[in-house]
């Protein structure tokens, strides 16, 4: 990580509190985090430590109670819901633990969705290409209920990359999958990430998954206790030993 790398995401002492039965409950306190372009960052921590809350603030799904969040230099904390939506449409991709495909749409249509939201006239072709990249070219007309969990998550990953987002947020992307499928999905995620040169912020309590990221930060009781762990230098990470799933020639 070099100091002249472009900062894509930055928070300054953000806190998030909710009132519960007249008591203030502090979910997050004083979080400072900076993510550079092209980085892969894992947010780890035990259940209830505030990982997902932090993710929701980073992606502009929610607003901090205090503090500042900048995504691609846009002050999310000052934007209303509508403007934050626009920021997400322009720069953000998502992968959820529950896959969250729209049940009434086919796999292909699910992948097309974000591209259509961005008024991409080529949505269908691009979606078909991405489905091929995740190895589901023959399942495009299937509905989510006709796909296995792993296949659903592959569709979700294809959906996340179709807009070539600047930053991708993944919330426990392998949390609902068995070990073998998990590995497969993780491979796919990191390959595509590299291929599209996307910044990845990943929430997980799976330390093996976290280790595949360049950097891990740990949440504990709403505090960021350690964000200095750097697993590997970028250059080294780019030479992962596994066989890439996607064909680099396509890049």
């Amino acid at each position: 990580m070099t100091s002249n790398s472009e900062i894509i995401l930055k928070t300054q002492s953000i806190t998030k509190s909710v009132s519960l039965e007249n008591k203030q409950l502090h979910l997050l306190q004083g979080i400072d985090l900076t993510v550079y372009k092209g980085e892969t960052v894992a947010i780890v921590g035990s259940s209830g430590s505030g990982k997902t809350t932090l993710l929701s603030l980073l992606a502009g799904l929610d607003l901090p109670s205090q503090g500042e969040v900048y995504l691609k230099n846009k002050p999310l904390h000052q934007l209303n819901e509508e403007d934050r939506s626009q920021v997400r449409a322009d720069h953000v991709g998502f992968i959820f633990q529950q896959f969250l495909l729209v049940n009434s749409l086919t796999a292909l249509e699910n992948v097309m969705l974000p591209a259509e939201l961005a008024n991409n006239g080529n949505a269908k072709q691009e979606a078909q290409a991405l489905l091929a990249q995740v190895g589901l070219s023959d399942r495009g007309s299937h509905f989510p209920s006709q796909l296995s969990g792993g296949e659903q998550q592959r569709v979700a990953i294809a959906r996340a990359f179709i807009t070539k987002p600047d930053i991708l947020f993944a919330d426990e992307p392998t949390g609902n999958l068995d070990k073998k499928t998990s590995n497969h999905i993780a491979d796919l995620l990191f390959d595509l990430n590299k291929h599209y040169d996307t910044t990845l912020v990943l929430v997980t309590h799976d330390l093996l998954l976290a280790k595949r990221c360049q950097r891990s930060v740990e949440m504990k009781d709403g505090h960021l206790v350690d964000q200095s762990i750097v697993q590997k230098p970028l250059a080294e990470q780019n030479q992962e030993p596994h066989q890439p799933i996607i064909n680099p020639a396509n890049a």
Binding site: S85, V87, F96, L100, P114, A118
Partner: peptide
């Protein structure tokens, strides 16, 4: 509801 949530997370505007 969950579909709308996904739409919004993906950046769909309210008017959309």
């Amino acid at each position: 509801q969950s579909s709308v949530a996904v739409y919004k997370a993906m950046g769909a505007s309210l008017s959309h």
